[in-house]
């Protein structure tokens, strides 16, 4: 099951050229780009591992692509995303986030139902991938 998190995730995967253009948009707006990765696809997994520092003061997307590719090389079977952080006073938050790398096989989620009091049901999702220990989840 294809994980859909962040912008563009319902589109086919972006090519490097398309990523470049999106990053250019980020930089032209004066936002800082950052690369993050994870192997836990749960939708509530908000804070991913940082790949290096957020990149301030860049002018050209080639620098960000350099980091994306370095991260892909180190973690080819992880989810990798590019974040755009707006440091403007009073905003100081994420403006854009999109996935740039995903594992070849995404096993999807198990929907676990727990019977509650009365006839209520508590739903929980478990990623099949997350049943294995971190670091050995995707191949």
């Amino acid at each position: 099951m294809r994980v859909t998190q962040g912008t563009f995730s319902f589109l086919p995967d972006l090519t490097d050229e398309q990523i470049s253009k999106q990053v250019k948009y980020i930089l032209d707006n004066g936002w800082a780009a950052a690369v993050e990765f994870t192997d836990d696809p749960h939708p509530r997994n908000t804070y991913w591992e940082m790949w290096g520092h957020p990149m301030f003061d860049l002018r050209d997307p080639a620098g960000v692509l350099l980091e994306v590719n370095a991260c892909r090389k180190a973690y080819p079977q992880h989810y990798i995303r590019v974040n755009a952080f707006d440091a403007t006073n009073g905003i100081e938050s994420l403006k854009l986030s999109f996935i740039v790398n995903r594992p070849d096989e995404e096993p999807g989620f198990n929907l676990h139902r727990t019977e509650g009091p009365g006839r209520s049901i508590i739903y929980t999702t478990h990623s099949y991938a997350a049943q294995k220990p971190a670091g050995s989840r995707y191949g």
Binding site: G52, H53, M55, D57, L58, R59, D60, P61, A62, G63, V64, L66, E67
Partner: peptide
């Protein structure tokens, strides 16, 4: 290494 890469990334495109 990170310091040099930082500088290089800032200079990219120029």
């Amino acid at each position: 290494a990170p310091k040099t890469r930082e500088v290089v990334k800032k200079a990219m495109g120029g």
